[in-house]
């Protein structure tokens, strides 16, 4: 549910959190991204950085350039100007990520957890069972059969937080408890109602289902795609996971290493929230493909 008025709360002397609602309705993220785009277009003096999440946008400001009170006035003005969520049209690129589902590297991380922390069901089978899928093949079909929406790039450099746009592809699963001690970089994992691509070898809680050979970021900006930004994705982009086998995975990995890999990111589309919501409302979430 969308709040009648966004709730804005302070986070110390340099941040405010703008909340558009209290639940995980994707419309709330669209509004957060709408405000983010409006702040960019408006070039609001003193706004340093913004970071969207499920239902909120955190705004970092420089109090030497804009007072807290003036910032609140500015944010309220821009929120009011957003209008109805269905009128939003967001810049959205589409990135295709070759993905090896059920790959040997995430399998090793799961086995290591079972051995050193505690035994658990193999992650893909766990997700299959909890979501009433037929088998691992259907998991791949359902997960790769939708565009995934980039809610936010957050927590770790370049890490996208993703939600499936097709209601028939929604998968839910609880996170690891206790968390995994390590996750292979570029692992694709799912937890709660989201998917994420791990960008560093760090602990994690999402269920591992695959891995991409394509990097989400490159600090050295060696490959042309990273020329303007060290990270591949930005909020409001879409991701399509394209299943590949081990041979193709290794081939792409080798080309990434050489720096000759051609990224597949298209930029000609814009995302109409109204058109999407009208289409999504007609889908039966239980009609898996």
């Amino acid at each position: 549910m969308i709040f009648a008025e966004p709730v804005i709360r302070p986070g110390g002397d340099r941040f405010v959190l703008v909340q558009f609602g209290d639940d995980a309705a994707i419309e709330l993220n669209f509004l957060a991204l709408g405000l983010k785009a409006a702040l960019t277009a408006d070039r609001t003096t003193g706004v340093v950085d913004t970071n969207p999440s499920y239902n909120s946008l955190i705004v970092e400001y420089d109090p030497d350039l804009i007072s807290h009170d003036d910032l609140l006035v500015e944010l309220r003005k821009l929120c009011n100007a957003l209008g109805q969520v269905d009128t939003l049209v967001l810049e959205s690129r589409l990135a295709y990520l070759p993905t090896m589902y059920l790959d040997p590297w995430t399998k090793e991380a799961i086995e290591s957890y079972c051995e050193k922390v505690k035994p658990r069901e193999f992650d893909p089978d766990f997700v299959v069972r909890l979501n009433g899928l037929k088998d691992r093949r259907q998991l791949v079909r359902v997960h790769s059969g939708t565009e995934h929406w980039v809610i936010s790039v957050c927590s770790l450099p370049g890490l996208p937080l993703l939600r499936p746009l097709d209601p028939r592809s929604l998968l839910t699963s609880p996170k690891y408890d206790p968390p995994r001690l390590w996750t292979p970089p570029n692992a694709i994992c799912t937890g709660g109602m989201s998917t994420s691509v791990h960008t560093l070898r760090v602990p994690g809680g999402y269920n591992l289902i695959g891995r991409t050979p394509v990097p989400m970021w490159e600090a050295t900006q060696r490959m042309p795609i990273f020329k303007d930004s060290v990270v591949l994705l930005r909020a409001a982009d879409r991701v399509k996971f394209v299943p590949v086998d081990l041979d193709e995975y290794l081939d792409v990995e080798a080309r990434v290493k050489e720096g000759t890999y051609q990224f597949n990111v298209t930029e000609y589309q814009r995302f109409s929230v109204g058109a999407y919501r009208a289409w999504a409302a007609k889908q039966d979430p239980l009609a898996r493909f």
Binding site: G11, G12, R14, F15, L17, Q19, D23, A24, N51, P52, S53, Y54, N55, S56, L57, I58, E60, S152, C154, L161
Partner: peptide, 10 residues
């Protein structure tokens, strides 16, 4: 809470 942005110093 549902994931949200963290202020530095929070």
């Amino acid at each position: 809470v549902l994931d949200h942005g963290y202020p530095v110093g929070t």
